[in-house]
Simulated scan of single mutants.
Amino acid sequence: MAEFSPAEVTVAQIAMRAGVNETTIYRKWGSKDALYRDVLLTLSSEQLEMTDTGSLRGDLLQVVSGVATFLRTPAGYSLAYLGATGEDATTAALRDAFWADRFAKAQVIFDRAVERGEIADASVAELAYEALIGTMHFRILARRRPLADDIAERLVDLVLDGVLSASTESRTPG
């Protein structure tokens, strides 16, 4: 997967490298695409951990940096591409499960920030996460541009300025 694009990978190549018969792969996954998605989703969940750094900015930098690093790899790009373009029921189910997990983990980050008193309202978590991660996906998929080395810091600061402003406004009696 790291050596070839999804279109170039065949079940025969996968089976040969795994030391199994092609029928084993079809029996377990049903198709090359299902195997590919399963591997990429597993890989992404292993590499895209969300840990508590002690601050909202630190947590977001850690997450966004991890996503940027992953998206720079052939596997990360492939996952983003498959997630954005796959229309079959299997892809839709995997995409929904993947993003539900990501949004739940992002919500935890924002809930911790409320508990620490950094922000007043965590209801912006999903939109903020979409702005952070969606911007990188847009850049690599729609614009076909590489992610700059400082993309995580620039995006986090840009989004946090908006989150902190919105949080301050929600505290101000209107």
Rank of each mutant, 00 (worst) to 15 (best):
Q47V: 00
Q47C: 05
L48Q: 09
L48P: 08
M50K: 13
T51V: 12
D52H: 13
T53H: 06
T53N: 08
T53E: 12
T53L: 11
G54D: 07
G54V: 02
G54P: 01
S55A: 04
R57F: 09
R57V: 03
G58P: 04
G58V: 02
D59Y: 07
L60H: 10
L61G: 08
L61T: 05
Q62T: 07
V63P: 03
V63F: 11
V63K: 03
V63I: 04
V63Q: 08
V64D: 02
S65Y: 02
S65H: 07
G66P: 01
T69R: 15
T69W: 05
L71I: 11
L71S: 12
T73P: 04
A75V: 11
A75Q: 14
G76Y: 11
G76Q: 09
G76R: 14
G76F: 08
Y77L: 02
S78L: 10
A80Y: 11
L82Q: 15
L82P: 01
G83W: 00
G83T: 10
G83L: 13
G83D: 02
A84W: 13
A84Q: 11
G86N: 10
E87D: 15
E87A: 14
D88I: 05
D88N: 15
A89S: 10
T90V: 07
T90I: 13
T91Q: 06
T91N: 15
A93E: 07
R95W: 06
D96L: 11
A97R: 11
F98P: 02
A100Q: 13
D101R: 15
R102E: 10
R102G: 05
R102V: 15
F103H: 11
A104E: 11
A104W: 01
K105I: 07
A106T: 01
A106N: 05
A106E: 01
A106V: 03
V108M: 09
I109P: 05
F110V: 01
F110H: 00
F110Q: 10
D111A: 00
R112T: 04
R112K: 13
R112P: 02
R112N: 12
A113W: 14
A113I: 06
R116H: 10
G117D: 11
E118Y: 06
I119P: 04
S123F: 10
S123C: 03
V124K: 04
A125Q: 02
A125I: 00
L127V: 08
A128I: 03
A128G: 01
A128L: 02
Y129M: 04
E130K: 09
E130G: 13
